[in-house]
Design a protein around this nucleic acid. Structure first.
Lengths: 293, 293
DNA sequence: AGCATGCATAAGGACAGCTTATGCGAGACT
DNA sequence: AGTCTCGCATAAGCTGTCCTTATGCATGCT
């Protein structure tokens, strides 16, 4: 059972409500002639008259009178559903982010965003997958990379800088860390991390011998950080992710020298959606956070 | 709150049901490209992705998943309503007819029509108004007139013939009616009826003196007939309308001479609806009745 | 009687939306 | 592992729907 043209049904619904083709036309933003045409079309399709044409008004036939309320209800349902969907879509911000960034930077600050936008619910998706808005149900993403994605807007957040860190207690075991080379006296958490070589080079230590240190791999800075805070060794971490710990003295960063591998964290979202309010709100908030820092 | 283009919603509904653009396209009788296009349109309109494009399938996003069932329900409602309307429209035959014809010819025979078409409900509208299907909620009409109406199909039913009739008891009071002039000895029901003059002329009585008879007007043959059967006087009636009474002896028609004024009863209906089953059924039935007569 | 109102109808035109053609990505098959 | 196939996206171009403008007609109002 095929539906008649939906355009005609919509016109009928409006005309039935108004009891007037002219008024219906106005509501729908079209001419009276168009309404007349569509109604006629629908009547032919259904095979029965829907309106009686009386001198200064049209009134529904019996057939029309039975049809109209159901159609109206169906349209109300759709209108409500679409409206709800819009609110829904506008009210939930889904962020897909690298776990490290989520745990070490975003989550601790998210409260201030929620405070500023109480009507926005935030849904976090921490995954390591490559970002692709066509196959992930997300509004905005945080990823590291080169910062050039076609069709995407990207804002540079900060570099993936790194520097050695350790717990004060561990530093005390060798009477404090004074030179970069001192670090090699201590256990190294994840010595296979390529960041070590880059950093030692920047610190003027050409060929650091990391071999002798106990080997453990994490692959996730978040876990590596935990180990370092626990005093298990020296780690190479991103300073902005450990501001709190550094401030509170749980960690120390013995040298200001930072390495970087030209990778950055980026905030990205589809160009086409750059003006969606919730996306705008999050972007503005995040950029402001960075400016304050 | 304006609805997005309905065409797009319909496509979305189908696509959500199938979980596939290709299958939805097939159901809707269009190409996969068109579906893709419409979905994209709707997503832009709503401001959120509705589907996630995964390798060999599309799946609904959270937003889409909430929208789809409501839309489906709304469409089901409309489909059901339209289907019901069609049945309704097909199942009720509304006849607008002259009261005289209804009472004297149609109603007594309608039983045989109902018997032949048990699924058809008949609704009779007996009015004297001029017929106009644009402003009367009727499928088919019976009217007298010239038989030429633009845009209408008309079938001649029979002429508005007329002849004097009276009750046997009344005839007995003057020892039987032998010549047309004998009628003038009796009371005439509604002597102002123009049919009298025409009939007497046809019967060879040039200047009948109707003045001396008691004057009463009915204006409706049905009522006039009642008076005649009751023996109140001679009336001028249409024979086909009183077949039963004549056969049963309640009325007698003393002369075979009939007058007519070139008016006929017609069965009429809009040309555009000549193939609507219920209209066809009634027309065929009525013409058959006439042929049998 | 004349005017105003509301719908029907005809003709013509614009644009939405469909089709065709092609590309691309990722499972599936051998 | 390579190739095939399936399903969606995209571009370009056309077609047909549907809308507009213009006009007519009937009727109720003043």
């Amino acid at each position: 059972m095929n539906l008649p043209p939906l355009a005609a049904i919509r016109v009928f619904e409006a005309a039935a409500r108004h009891g007037s083709f002219t008024n219906a036309a106005e509501e729908l933003g079209m001419t009276q002639a168009a309404v007349s045409y569509q109604i006629k079309l629908l009547e032919e399709r259904i095979g029965a008259a829907l309106f009686l044409r009386r001198p200064r008004q049209v009134i529904l036939t019996e057939v029309g009178a039975r049809l109209a309320p159901v159609i109206s209800e169906a349209f109300d349902m759709m209108r409500a559903a679409i409206a709800a969907t819009r609110e829904n879509a506008d009210g939930i911000l889904t962020i897909t982010t690298i776990p490290t960034f989520a745990a070490n930077w975003l989550v601790p600050r998210l409260g201030s965003f929620q405070l500023a936008h109480p009507s926005l619910a935030v849904r976090l998706q921490a995954t390591r997958e490559i970002i692709d808005f066509a196959r992930q149900d997300a509004d905005i993403g945080i990823r590291s990379g080169g910062g050039r994605w076609p069709g995407m807007v990207s804002h540079k957040i900060f570099g993936a800088d790194f520097a050695p860190m350790l717990s004060p207690a561990l530093a005390a075991t060798i009477g404090g860390v004074k030179t970069p080379a001192d670090l090699l006296k201590l256990p190294i958490v994840d010595p296979s991390d390529p960041w070590w070589k880059i950093w030692f080079a920047a610190a003027g230590v050409a060929e650091p011998d990391l071999r002798g240190n106990p080997l453990s791999r994490f692959g996730d800075q978040h876990l590596e950080g935990k180990a370092v805070i626990a005093g298990q060794g020296v780690g190479i971490l991103t300073p902005v992710f450990y501001e709190t710990e550094l401030k509170q003295g749980q960690l120390i960063q013995p040298f200001d020298i930072v390495g970087n591998d030209d990778h950055f964290y980026w905030l990205v979202y589809p160009e086409a959606r750059r003006n969606v309010p919730k996306i705008r709100a999050f972007r503005d908030w995040l950029l402001e956070q960075l400016a304050d820092q």
